[in-house]
Design a protein around this nucleic acid. Structure first.
Lengths: 208, 208
DNA sequence: AAAAAACCTGACCAAATGGTCAAAATGAGC
DNA sequence: GCTCATTTTGACCATTTGGTCAGGTTTTTT
């Protein structure tokens, strides 16, 4: 598949710099809104030099996305069919919130790519992601059948967790404007986790 | 404030066309990623003619956003402090889902603007929106004190509703790839509403 | 230290982009 | 039909953008 690229130290360092800078601008302005020049200057090098490492804008974009998808997907993989639903789901939410806190730009880039119609990652969505989600949906159905959780549509449940956790990264400016804080703050993140998992597990209405 | 512009029929029609086309491309590509030329061609007119109606790209953008904010905010305004929490929240979720179904592009444009740091609407977020949200948070706290709902952080609760409902518009391509359907579909929307309100109100764990 | 390879720069280019303008075409009011 | 205001066009412009390239500089290898 991937042949070993055999990279120099300089290459290693500069490619990393470029990818980091590119993540920032792609996340903010999308693919079309991003200027190669700006990536270069953010990465602290000339445009010519940047293009020495990545032949074109779209090549940078693909490289950034490729590194991103795995990290985005990882938390879902850890959902354990044999675990306790309450524990498992709380852990899942926590991992997703942590991702939003630690890599908000990655979250926003993913959102941006999907909002544009997922032109670059459509095959991943329809292939590996779809398979994984179906597998985990089956886990949820199984829990429901065993009476461990209520019988709800597993897809909408998964979407709810994605939406709420990613929201803290994707809409960070709004949240900051309204609350004066954000998911990067430890206390805030703890509050979000508690409220989210409590609502998801116990619901809003008082129990009889 | 706004002086009456006194517009021709032609102006009325062409401005509307432009704003609609602009909504589409701004939602997809963001401000910087959008090309004036493309808006014009989507609106069925020449770039020159478009610029006869709106003097510049940013003028178009501002006009689109201005028309959008009210519609985005409207549902929250209807939350009635004297109503039954269960009814009120379900109605709120339904309105937000309807918005995602009927105006997905508006939802995506809003998301895009916020993700870029809300440069154009920051003052609205920090002013009117903040005030309205604080007001409604107070309603939720009041319900909690009256024992009508559980005592949860009202802000995270509001974010949960925003996140989940908007997700169906903003991440439509992903949802479509995974489920083969989307919020535009009546049956799908009904399913989303039922699952969402059930989860939010009753929670996932079976009641004792 | 010489040679080879890797790295970097600045000048350059064609295409695209936001925007202007004078003049032509179309419409409304009489 | 005639006049005047509105609308539309196409040619044009300066700037920006993605990308190339020849040659110079630094690092690595021998």
């Amino acid at each position: 598949m991937d042949d070993q690229p055999r990279r120099t130290r300089i290459q290693e360092r500069n490619r990393a710099r470029i990818l980091e800078a590119a993540l920032g601008t792609f996340a903010r302005f999308g693919y079309r809104g991003t200027r190669v020049d700006q990536i270069a200057s953010d990465a602290g090098m000339s445009k010519s030099n940047l293009l020495y490492y990545f032949g074109s804008k779209s090549e940078i974009y693909k490289a950034v996305l490729a590194g991103l998808l795995d990290r985005w997907l990882a938390p879902l993989r850890t959902l354990d069919p044999d675990g306790d639903p309450r524990r498992e789901l709380t852990a899942y939410i926590e991992q997703k919130l942590r991702f939003s806190a630690n890599e908000p730009e990655a979250s926003r880039l993913f959102a941006n790519e999907v909002m544009q119609g997922a032109p670059m990652i459509r095959d991943v969505l329809e292939g590996p992601l779809k398979a994984l989600v179906e597998e985990k949906a089956e886990v949820l159905r199984h829990w429901a059948k065993a009476g461990k959780i209520r019988d709800v549509d597993p897809y909408h449940l998964i979407f709810l967790i994605w939406a709420t956790t990613q929201h803290y990264a994707d809409f960070a400016p709004q949240i900051e404007a309204l609350t004066g804080s954000g998911i990067h703050d430890d206390r805030f993140r703890k509050g979000a986790l508690e409220t989210l998992s409590a609502l998801l597990l116990e619901g809003l209405l008082p129990r009889a």
